[in-house]
């Protein structure tokens, strides 16, 4: 049995402490340890984007981050997007534009889209497609997702 490590980090704006084993991914700890199941596992090797979160404001695949690595750092998951009960503009745009079907890729898509709009508030269609290329969606064909991001960016 590997010794557990105590990790302190800011998760969705809250100071959080948790115990984890070194080999546990941030994804596993978010979902199984902290009950933040909005972040999804689709491949566990960085190829689907369902587990996207922001780490110190940067988009990462939480399956490729060890939970011990986030000591002292800040994580935002889909649960941290809305200022309850007010949805984030991207969440509203996804709902209004039917930018989801099964909804499983949606948390990752929203986080990736937020990362994009944070650095580029008015992306072109090509920029949106390039940025979201790491987030697979099998239901929508991406069309309505791209349009929702455009809608949220005020274009």
């Amino acid at each position: 049995m590997t010794k557990k490590t105590l990790v302190s980090a800011t998760i969705n704006g809250e100071e959080t402490e948790f115990l984890c084993e070194p080999q546990q991914s941030l994804l596993e700890v978010l979902r199984d340890g902290l009950g933040l199941t909005g972040t999804k596992e689709g491949c566990n090797d960085g190829n689907c984007g369902a587990c996207s979160v922001l780490l110190d404001g940067r988009l990462v695949n939480s399956c490729l981050v060890l939970a011990v690595e986030i000591e002292g750092r800040s994580v935002v998951t889909v649960e941290g997007l809305a200022e309850w009960p007010r949805l984030h503009p991207l969440q509203k745009a996804f709902a209004e534009n039917d930018a989801l079907q099964c909804g499983f890729c949606t948390p990752g898509m929203l986080i990736a889209s937020k990362a994009l709009l944070d650095r580029n508030p008015h992306p072109t269609e090509a920029e949106i497609r390039a940025w979201l290329a790491g987030n697979l969606c099998r239901c929508t064909g991406y069309d309505k997702i791209v349009r929702a991001v455009q809608a949220a960016s005020g274009e």
């Binding site: 984007g49 990736a112 290329a133």
Partner: peptide, 9 residues
């Protein structure tokens, strides 16, 4: 090398 998320790591 990878997409946006991979680029950051």
């Amino acid at each position: 090398i990878g997409g946006a998320a991979i680029q950051n790591r």
